[in-house]
Amino acid sequence: MSMAAALDTQWALRWVQETARVVAENRALLIDLDRVIGDADHGENLDRGFSAVVAKLDAGDAPATPAAVLKQVAMTLMSTVGGAAGPLYGTAFLRAATSLGDAGEIDAAAAAGMIRAARDGIVARGKAEVGDKTMVDAWTPATESAETAAQAGATPPEVLAAAANAAHAGAVATEPLIARKGRASYLGERSAGHQDPGAVSTALILQAAAEAAGEGVA
C-alpha cells in the first residue's frame, strides 16, 4: 500500500469509496453467509447502500470535515439499506460523526474514540451483547484493540489497522456461536457453523478505513 496518510476529509471520502468497492467485491460472500442463517439480503443491501452513498457524495458539495462525510453515510444508509444493517450502521456512522466534532484531522485517540462511539451506538440500537453472534462480536474487539494501540502510541492509521485486524478475528470467532439476536436467532443451533454476516461486513468496513489511510491489513 501507499504511505500512511492523515485522517482528514479526503481520507473519509476514500474510506467510503473503498468500502463501496470491498462490499461490492464481497457481495456474493455476504449474501451466502446471510442465506444460511438469515434472509440473504445483507450483501445486496450493503452494496446498494454504499453505492448510494458514493453517488450522493459525488453529486453533492464536498463535505468540509470527516464528520460531515460520516454523517452523510449514516443518513443515506438509513434510507436505502432496508434490513437491520440500515439502522445499525446508520447509528454507528452517526455516533462516529458526533464523536469527531468539527475536527479537520483525526488523531490516534480520536480514531479510537470514533470506533468506540460506533460500537456503543450499535449496542444501544440492537441491544446485542458479545457472544450473541452479531456485528457486536467484531466491533467490540476492534474497539479494544484500537484503544490499546492508541494508548501505546500508535499512529492514527495504525489504530485503524489494529481495529480492522481485531474485527476480522472477531468475525471468524463467530462461526461456532449460536445466534441470540436478529433473524438468525430463529434458527437456534442451526445457526452455528457459519460466520455472522454482520461481523464479516464490519471487518470489511474497518479494513477499508485502514486501507484508505494507507495502512495494509494483515
Partner: peptide, 17 residues
Amino acid sequence: GGVDDGGGPVRIGTSFD
C-alpha cells in the same frame, strides 16, 4: 412498509424516510 431507492421498486425492508 418496504423500502425503495427513491423511485425504484419497493423491496422488503424498512425505510427511515
